[in-house]
Structures are given as C-alpha cells and as structure tokens.
Design a protein around this nucleic acid. Sequence first.
DNA 1: ATTTGTGAATATTTTCACAGCG
DNA 2: CGCTGTGAAAATATTCACAAAT
Lengths: 267, 267
Amino acid sequence: MATGRTHRPATRSRGIPEATVARLPLYLRALTALSERSVPTVSSEELAAAAGVNSAKLRKDFSYLGSYGTRGVGYDVEYLVYQISRELGLTQDWPVVIVGIGNLGAALAGYGGFASRGFRVAALIDADPAMTGKPVAGIPVQHSDDLEKIIAEDGVSIGVIATPAGVAQQVCDRLVAAGVTSILNFAPTVLSVPDGVDVRKVDLSIELQILAFHEQRKAGEEAGAEPGALPSAPAPYAATEGDAPARGGKGGGRKGPDGDAPAVMPA
Amino acid sequence: MATGRTHRPATRSRGIPEATVARLPLYLRALTALSERSVPTVSSEELAAAAGVNSAKLRKDFSYLGSYGTRGVGYDVEYLVYQISRELGLTQDWPVVIVGIGNLGAALAGYGGFASRGFRVAALIDADPAMTGKPVAGIPVQHSDDLEKIIAEDGVSIGVIATPAGVAQQVCDRLVAAGVTSILNFAPTVLSVPDGVDVRKVDLSIELQILAFHEQRKAGEEAGAEPGALPSAPAPYAATEGDAPARGGKGGGRKGPDGDAPAVMPA
DNA sequence: ATTTGTGAATATTTTCACAGCG
DNA sequence: CGCTGTGAAAATATTCACAAAT
C-alpha cells in the first residue's frame, strides 16, 4: 500500500494483516481512555463499541497478537494497552520532524496525540527564513538548509511533510537521502520513494470527495430523482452524453486558472 | 464503513465498490494535472503511474463507471475528468461548514483543494467569542450559537469537525440535528451518529502509529534482532511476560497524567 | 453463565491474462 | 499492433457460529 514495488507479500512478517494493524491504534485509544478511568477489564463487546467496530472483528484482530483475554471475563485493560503499544512499536521513542510549518504544520506540532504516544517532535523545519527561530508550539523552527544535519543528529526515521504540493517531492527526496524511512505526507501529491521507504498520505480533500459521493447518493435515493442532479443510475456505456464535454473534443477545454494542481495548502 | 448499522449491503446502489470510490479522487487529481498540461489522452499505464496504483486496478475501477476508454488509444482526459467528477458528485456545489477554528481549522479553511473541487466553505464556526468576526482565510468566523441557523440558511449537508475531542460529540449532535448528513471528523474520538449519517475520520496520530509499526519491523529485520527492542516474533500465547504489566495486576498501574484521551488538539 | 479464540463460510478486493476492438 | 474491458483466479478481509475455557 505504500512500499515501493512488488517486493514482499505486503502482509509479511509475523503476518498481522494490514487491516488489523490499521485498527490497533483505534483499540489503543479506546483502551487508554478506559485505563484512565481505571477500568480493570473489558469485554470484546464493550471495547468494540468504544472503538467503533464489531466484536467479532476485534476478537479476530486480537487473536493475531496472541491470546491476551480470559474467557468468561474479558481483557485486562493495562495488559492489553501494553501489548498493543509494544506491537505498534510505541514503547520506544520515535523522533519525528515536521517539514512545512504553516497552519497545518503548526497544528501538527501542537497536536497532543503525538506526544502522548511514543512520538516526539524532534524538529520543525521550514524554508521561510522569516520563520527560523520562531517558536511554534514551544519548539523553535529551524531552517531547511539544516535538514540533513538535524535528521542525522537526532536519528530521525519518520518525517511529516506539510508543505505545499509543489515542493513535497523534493522535500521527500532530501528526507530519504538523509535517512528517513517512513513518511507521512499531507501534501496532495503522489510521492515516489525508493523501495524500503514507507509513505502514508492524508489527503483532506479526498475524504471530502468520498463524502460527497455518498451524499449525492442519498440525495438521489430519497425521492426517485433530483431536480438538477443526475438521477440514481446513469446506465453504463455512456448514456449520459449531451452535457458532457464532447468526447475526444481536443480543443480548448474549460477549467479556469484554478484547476487544482499547485494546491495552495498553507506552508 | 460509516453508516449506522446493518442496513444496506454497504456497497449498494449501482454498486461501485467502496475501494474504487476511495480511489476516484486520486485519479481525478492526476487527470486534472494532465488536463492543465493540455494532455489530450492517457493510457491506463500512464495514468496509473501518476496516481500511484497499478494499471489493472485502474482499468477495473474505470470499468465500474462504464466504458470510457478507446482500445488501442487510451482515455480522453477531459471526458474522464468530467465523468469522474460527476460520479463523485463534484459537478454540484457543496457548501461546507468547518467547526473549530484553531490551527487545524484555519489550515482547512485555507486549503485550496476544497475550493477547486465542488466544495465551498460556507462558514467557519468557533465557540470562542474572541474569535467571532475575525476573518480566517478571508472568511469571518461565526459564533457557535448560530450553528443551527447557519446550516439551515445555507443548506449545508457536510460538516467538518476540527474541535478538541472533548466537544466533538456534542458538536456532531448539533450538526446532525440541524440537518448535516455527512461529517468529516478530525477529532480523535469515535462519533456516534444516527443511521443515514456518514462519518469519515482523519486521525493524524493513527497514521503515525501505523508508520511506527512498519518502521519497527524494518529495524527488527535489518539484522536479526535489535538491542533494546523486541525481536521479530514474540510467539503467540504470552511468551513475553516479564517486563509486561503483570497480567491482571489490578493495582495502581503506571501512566502519568498525560495518557491521551482529552487530546490537546488545537481548537 | 459468560466470553474468548478460531475454524469455516462469505464477501470484498486485487491481480492475472487474454479476447476483442479500434 | 496496442490498449481497453473483463471474466476467472488468487489474495484479503469480514462475519458467523460454536467449542473450549474459566
């Protein structure tokens, strides 16, 4: 899903399925909340509800980690918090650098959820000289000229890119060259990285588009058809020509000077 | 994946698989970039590379939309942009409200990727009276007292929650009561919503945790075992007791006053 | 009595590989 | 030819349902 190319069966290693890995943080969050309320044990049913999944799935997920529950009783909260943390690698310290300190970068820097897990914001990096030295969330911003040095000195292996899309790839290249092997990308671009480097992306507008899709569906279903909008099923095989840009029409093409690519994203 | 309970076959309607829907925005972005460079056609191979997927998957995805390509040639860029936009519901205008105007909310408000698709930031809402009237990204912040009125007046059906976790559920409840049926949640909480309301979540720290998992794997593989860290396979069935919080130990339990739950997230 | 852990059944997603069309 | 569109196969993921454990 993120690794370079065909390489290993993706879900390799001791073979915890990717889908399960993606849910572990969810369970961990729910468990941490219970832990804080000093709840000693939970059943799969309760925990599943708190995490927003169904209990069969949760039990199956946990079964990949080992037999950490007690039949007839449930799971010991503290014990499970520890086991999941360990599995996720959160029992060790992960220094992280955030590159691009605009609104988003600042939000990330101040985000409590990082510090409370094994993550430590080792440095904030921005290309704007005016930002250099300015403290954001209590951490002084450093200039991107020093990127390589910072990464080497702190032994950083995880980088967060919160720059404008236009410079994301070059920032990525520098991070990778400097030794970073995991990247969380907020810029709306596909990053290409060498094999062995993991990239995960968070694209704010993609999520909205998925919502729009479902929203549209709801509107179309609610009463046969909509006024202006297309009705439910625009039969496959181009039944809906007419107001579509005449297929193959190579001429001008609409789309103002605001299309999308250089996405303004705060830097 | 977000709808209330067992209800409809999830991937219902004209039956575009969820996995495909989730990739359409990706294709759209790549196509828009091509469109801006006035590229008239693309092959599945090229487009797949630009979108970061493999070409068989892309062709399969497009096959759910209809036969929009030309054998031996490829896909007409403009035509495909239109078809995907329409499928995603982006040919109509979606007014969106953002609740919680901290760093994150401000980043979202200024995010170019919204405006460039069918999304229009109809209002920014914050509970802090000091924020009221202050323009953020050119839009004046409104007070949350007026939330219901704003949603009704603008016919908003999509809401973005960027508040602290502690108030996310109540904000959600108000949004839903006021008529919002799709929610994008950035607060690290599981929101419960009535049937028929879609929720998608973006959790910044979850993504990092998934990266940490893979990062840990890399470290463990690279040379048999690690110094301090656990080696690759902590055999199932609790082989790894010892430094774990004695199972069932109900007493104190570690965990400072910084656990996680009330997550500080900027408001 | 409960509630876990898990095989087996089902559903979904990805990938292969090639017929068919332009 | 080259490239799409798609059945069929393979791989993943989810759900069922119940035996086993406390």
